[in-house]
Amino acid sequence: MKILVTDDSRVMRQIVIRTLRQAGYDDHEIIQAEDGREALQMVGAEKPDLVLSDWNMPEMSGIECLEALRASGSQVPFGFVTSEGSPEMREKAANAGALFLIAKPFTEETFREALDGVLA
């Protein structure tokens, strides 16, 4: 399977990718985007099986990307990995069609709990 990791921080993308491997998802292809706009383009071009996205990003935020994807008819599985995990944001994410929201800081167990149902 192909996973698109979207975050404007290169360091955080590396941390997310490392955590994916530590969580046991080391046989999946990982591709990367630097913001929501690039992620939107890459979903069309690369056809990932899952998008993991930060929320706050320049150019286009994660929630704007998700809303644009759903508006265009894409039903690609989408989850947030973000520094904010308030009930309000979780509700907003779910209403927009996100499968889960992983709050930073996270562990490999957090990833397994969120991803096992998606990537199994």
Binding site: S9, R10, V11, N56, S83, E88, A103, K104
Partner: peptide
Amino acid sequence: DVDDALGELANVLGGNVKSLLPEPSSLGL
């Protein structure tokens, strides 16, 4: 890389602090 890493530490700390503050609040980059 240092700017990015320190920025992410501040970002994660900030996100968790924000969760304790009255809503509605927003977090900058």
